[in-house]
């Protein structure tokens, strides 16, 4: 042990250094958020509670029940049941997400060819019952109204860039290109 080390030990230099930082913080603005009162805004693309996108034209869910979200879901927490509706159209009978099993990877959002499922910025949904966290189609649509609403479309299109447009039939004949 050198003399320098001995001095450091006897006079608690390290501890004093640390306390000096503490002292200095006493005079600065606190970084702590007073969470329940003060909420942190979610960043763009935050993966919170799930929602089904409402089609502004019809007011119904955009989902057509293609099942790609359920196929890609790594925790297998999406259940889709479809049936033949009136005039032989495909109708999504039930669309259910077991939120407690979700790992928030958002693969479902990326896989969806119609931009019909989304993770909202809402993150406060702990509950005392599992049943309340089993999302049905109605609950998921309500989630959209509550947490995304009008500005949701904007945010959603900008950030996730859903692939639905790629499936649209082009209006005009594309120009010939030499390949």
């Amino acid at each position: 042990m050198t003399v320098q080390e001995l001095v450091k030990k006897v006079f608690f230099v390290e501890i004093l250094k640390g306390l000096a930082l503490t002292l200095s913080r006493l005079f600065t603005k606190p970084v702590t958020r007073r969470y329940p009162k003060e909420k942190r805004p979610a960043a763009l693309g935050f993966r919170g509670l799930h929602a089904l996108v409402r089609n502004p034209a019809t007011g119904e869910a955009k989902c057509v029940g293609c099942g790609l979200c359920a196929a890609i879901c790594p925790s297998r927490c999406i259940y889709i049941y479809t049936k033949e509706g009136p005039d032989h159209k495909k109708v999504v009978e039930r669309y259910e997400i077991e939120v407690l099993r979700c790992v928030y990877c958002a693969f479902c959002v990326e896989a969806c060819p119609f931009g019909a499922v989304v993770l909202t910025p809402h993150y406060e949904y702990s509950d005392y019952s599992r049943d309340n966290l089993y999302m049905t189609k109605e609950k998921l649509l309500q989630n959209w109204d509550k947490y995304m609403g009008e500005e949701g479309y904007n945010y959603f299109d900008k950030f996730w860039n859903p692939k639905a447009d790629h499936f649209r039939t082009p209006k005009e004949q594309p120009k010939w290109r030499k390949s």
């Binding site: 029940g65 293609c66 099942g67 359920a70 196929a71 889709i80 479809t82 049936k83």
Partner: peptide, 9 residues
Amino acid sequence: YKYRARAWF
């Protein structure tokens, strides 16, 4: 079978 399930289910 119409609209009852996807092939991968």
